[in-house]
Simulated scan of single mutants.
Amino acid sequence: MLSKILRQLTGVIGLLSLLLYFYQIVSSWLFHAWSIPWFAEVAVYAITWAMFLAVSELVAQDGHIRADFVISRLSVPAQRRCELINCGFGVGFSALMLWYGWLLTWDAWIWDDRSPTGIAFPLWIYYSCAPISGALMLYRYCIRLGQYLFAFNPTTMKLVSNEVM
């Protein structure tokens, strides 16, 4: 359910960004009077949010880019140990991202930090994508870690390289 919500939300945000950029480009070239300069700024914020939300889905789908060429040639127990180490680093990174993202967002909230452009966008909204993404990744890495610790099945959780030999 979470995956479906995140995919749809990421898609909607991405489509919104595309439409904002499209309007901004067309209006600035053809219809100067109807150009809205802050559309590009909001599109950047939206793309950043979409990217940060998509990261946790990559954790769930095991879709992050990595060099599994060597790992796939290891024995199943060695692959499991590598995945446990990977999940440990992922949990640590996600927790740091959650914590420091929260500090950044809180500071922007407290100091009423705003973008230097004409719309003076509240930057705490923009920065809050970091702790939310960190929390989502932490949740997904904890699930993955639990699977490798307690529900490991060597026949189904073995990494297989996609390369044809």
Rank of each mutant, 00 (worst) to 15 (best):
A67K: 10
F22R: 03
S17F: 00
L15D: 02
F22G: 13
Y45H: 12
D68R: 07
I25K: 04
V44Q: 10
V42Q: 03
L15E: 01
F39S: 14
L20S: 10
W38F: 15
W38P: 05
H32Y: 13
V42H: 03
W34N: 10
L16T: 12
Q24H: 15
G63I: 08
I25G: 04
H32I: 08
I65Y: 08
Q61C: 10
D68M: 07
L30A: 13
V12M: 01
F52S: 01
I13W: 00
S28C: 08
Q24A: 15
W49K: 02
W49T: 01
L16P: 01
R66L: 08
F52H: 01
V26G: 01
S35R: 07
E57G: 06
V55W: 12
L58Y: 03
P37N: 10
L30M: 12
M51F: 15
S35C: 06
Q24D: 15
W29S: 12
I47Q: 05
F22S: 14
I36Q: 13
E57A: 00
L16I: 10
L30N: 06
I65R: 06
V12F: 04
M51I: 11
I13V: 06
L53Y: 05
V26I: 13
D62A: 10
G63P: 07
Y21S: 05
G11T: 02
G63V: 09
G14I: 00
V55D: 01
I25V: 14
A60N: 06
W38Y: 15
A50L: 03
P37R: 08
S27Q: 07
V44D: 02
A50S: 11
F52P: 01
V42L: 15
H32C: 03
L18T: 02
F31C: 03
S28E: 11
Q24C: 14
G11M: 03
D62T: 06
D68I: 12
Q24T: 12
W29D: 07
S35L: 07
W29C: 09
D62L: 08
V42P: 01
I71L: 14
P37Y: 11
Q61K: 14
A67T: 09
A50T: 01
A50C: 04
L18R: 01
L30Q: 09
S35T: 12
F22P: 02
I71A: 15
G63F: 07
Y23T: 11
H64V: 07
F52Q: 02
A54W: 05
I71K: 10
S56T: 06
P37G: 07
V42N: 02
Y21N: 09
W49F: 04
I47H: 04
W38S: 15
V42I: 15
A67I: 13
F22W: 05
F39R: 04
S17G: 11
W49H: 06
I47P: 00
L58I: 04
G11Q: 00
I13H: 00
Q61W: 04
E57M: 04
V12K: 00
L20I: 03
A50G: 09
Y45K: 02
A54H: 07
Q61M: 09
F69A: 14
V59R: 05
G14L: 06
D68N: 12
V12A: 07
A67R: 13
Y21T: 09
F52W: 09
Q24L: 06
I13N: 00
F52Y: 09
S17T: 10
A43K: 02
I65D: 05
A67M: 11
P37T: 13
A33C: 02
M51T: 12
I71Q: 12
Q61P: 03
A43I: 04
V26A: 11
